[in-house]
Design a protein around this nucleic acid. Structure first.
Length: 566
RNA sequence: GCGCGGUUAGCUCAGUUGGAUAGAGCGUCGGCCUCCGAAGCCGAAGGCCACAGGUUCGAAUCCUGUACCGCGCACCA
């Protein structure tokens, strides 16, 4: 519909400009906020006014005189400074109800010829402890985004990168080992550098069941720490998977950083970079802004990321000759490219913001500018309890885990609340308040709308109303403001979905859900659905069915239940 | 110092890439269930869209600068 209106205007404008040396501006239709301004509005007369040196309202008149509208247009009006407002025939808009009921969960979805294979990497929380709320936000965002992209025909792989290599795993193993000895009666002083959390003791206990202390002590020290590290990572990953499952999130692929080292992919990558002269030996300048006392100029192999947009070149090998995290991460992204993905999307915490350019630069360099990951940074969740900040540092060991939060406020409420905010805005989340207001939570507003529609549909069935087939309903009787507003919301769904997917912004879906719920609640109060007028009852039941369907479609993308009763 | 993100109602946040009278949830105040689900609806109060310039028919939105908040800035991940 929108496209055909745009075409009609396009032709009229081109005709009008045939005699002028003026390029045709892009015709963009918008949905006005106010019902009085029509179903669609076009502003094309205004930019033309400047170029043609005439008044915008006059130009709009000329356009309207020349335009050849499709059947569905009821009337048009020139308004304000020169808007062309387009009013459609009510019946033609209401046709959407039939489409929704026929297409069901496919309404709003597209099968684009531009469909891509997308690798969406998210969460990737370090396997050194439980997930906290910030991870949860990234998890919810990623899962909803994956659902969203799938509606546009893309094939999405959900992927988790396990950072199971490097010094933090050594620290983890060490911490667990100390706790194991402590559990066996040894008096130890726990180092500041260790992980102090309770969960470490749980893992220690688990490992002592796995094998006796005597057996652990009999092992060679390196082998023991390595084994403890492996088992600890495994334990943490199990906990992380459970946390994710509690939110209804599942991954298709887990890629282990360690495996990239063991398979030789990292080493191979380093060699490749050297062969392509993307690496040279050099010294990093001292860091800016932060006082570093023990700075020593040190010669290292540096990746020429500055040639691809980075601020400084980045080391790929440490002083001891082992690969940096950066090197492994490049190898990982390169691996994604080789697996044949058309697009890579990474969701990271804001604390990794400084890391974006260098990874993008590296992948660009490796693929001859062919590919680079899109990185979404999700800002911190500022967790408070009764107005007091709650520390979330893993090192402090006093953080509130994602599990606790999900248990307190429920998976649906967590998911929905996280999705009502844009990723780039910080999010203040107060636990006391979330608990206190759990009955007044926005998520219930949306879910209640769905349960309510379902209740009406049930009621109709109970009262023996025979629902007509969608094709046989007379939709011309849906004329009230509330009905029109609701239809226009339903009609907007595919546009919302497409835009949300294009911009990688699933919060738009949550936003839409609220709008649709509002429109439905208003309609419900203003219009009685089941009533004496047979035709009107049929039309409104069809509308109710359509609302239920679209609410469900939208909530499903957000990973939130659409209950039939509550 | 530099980079990224933010600043909109008492609180938490939207604002359809520059449009018409800036919205929602929570909170406050006042109405609405003999009637399909009141977890709802209707109404009211509440705004210098951080500040100052600029761009143009038109700015919360774009550009420049300033202020404040968050995150990051070698040899960790």
């Amino acid at each position: 519909m929108k496209a055909s209106l745009e075409r009609a205007l396009q032709q009229a404008v081109e005709q009008l400009l045939a005699d002028h040396e003026v390029s045709t501006p892009a015709i963009v239709l918008t949905r006005p906020k106010h019902k009085d301004h029509g179903d669609y509005a076009c502003n094309v007369a205004m930019p033309l006014a400047g170029r043609l040196g005439r008044k915008p309202r006059q130009i709009a008149e000329d356009i309207l005189a020349a335009v050849c509208w499709p059947e569905a247009v009821n009337k048009t009006k020139i308004a304000g400074p020169g808007f062309i407002n387009i009013y459609l025939r009510a019946a033609s808009e209401a046709e959407v109800l039939r489409r929704i009921v026929q297409q069901k969960s496919a309404y709003g979805c597209q099968t684009s010829e531009k469909a891509q294979r997308i690798c969406l990497e998210f969460v990737s929380a370090n396997p050194t402890g439980p997930m906290h709320v910030g991870h949860g936000r990234g998890a919810v965002l990623g899962d909803s985004l994956a659902n969203l992209l799938a509606t546009q025909g893309h094939e999405v792989t959900r992927e988790y990168y396990i950072n199971d290599a490097g010094v933090q795993i050594g620290v983890l193993a060490n911490s667990v080992w100390l706790r194991m000895r402590e559990l066996c009666g040894e008096l130890i002083s726990f180092p500041d550098a260790g992980y102090p959390g309770e969960y470490i003791i749980d893992i220690a206990r688990q490992l002592l069941k796995h094998q006796s202390m005597a057996q652990w002590q009999a092992m060679d020290e390196d082998a023991r720490l390595q084994r403890i590290g492996e088992l600890s990572v495994e334990a943490n990953m199990t906990a992380i998977r459970e946390d994710l499952a509690r939110l209804g999130i599942h991954f298709d692929v887990f890629t282990s950083e360690k495996s990239l080292h063991e398979s030789g992919q990292v080493q191979q990558l380093v060699q490749q970079l050297e062969a392509e002269d993307l690496v040279y030996r050099g010294c990093l300048p001292p860091p800016k802004g932060k006082e570093v006392k023990d700075y020593q100029p040190q010669e290292q192999p540096l990746f020429r990321t500055t040639d691809f947009g980075d601020d400084v070149d980045r080391p790929i090998l440490k002083q001891d000759g082992t690969a940096t995290y950066f090197a492994a991460d490049i190898a990982y992204h390169y691996d994604k490219v080789q697996r044949g993905f058309d697009r890579m999307i990474d969701i990271w915490g804001a604390d990794h913001g400084g890391y974006v350019t260098r990874v993008q630069a590296a992948v660009k360099a490796l693929t001859g500018l062919e590919a680079q990951p899109d990185v979404l940074l999700v800002q911190m969740v500022n967790l408070t309890r009764g107005g007091r900040p709650v520390r979330m540092s893993k090192r402090a060991g006093t953080f509130v885990t994602l599990e606790e939060v999900v248990r307190e406020v429920g998976a649906d409420a967590v998911r929905f609340n996280f999705m009502t905010r844009r990723a780039e805005s910080q999010f203040d989340f107060d636990l006391e308040e979330a608990k206190l207001q759990s009955d007044e939570n926005p998520v219930y507003y949306a879910q209640y709308a769905h349960a309510r529609v379902c209740a009406v549909l049930r009621k109709a069935k109970e009262e023996g109303v025979q629902q007509l087939a969608a094709e046989d309903c007379d939709l011309s009787c849906l004329r009230s403001d509330a009905e029109q507003a609701l239809i226009s919301r339903l009609l907007a769904w595919p546009e919302v979905l497409q835009k949300a997917a294009e911009r990688l912004e699933p919060y738009r879906v949550a936003n839409y859900v609220m709008q649709l719920a509002t429109a439905f609640h208003a309609f419900y109060h203003q219009c009685r659905i089941i009533q004496d007028d047979e035709a009107l009852t049929q039309a409104r039941l069809l509308m109710a069915e359509a609302v239920a369907q679209v609410l469900k479609n939208a909530l499903t993308i957000l990973g939130v239940q659409a209950p039939e009763k509550m």
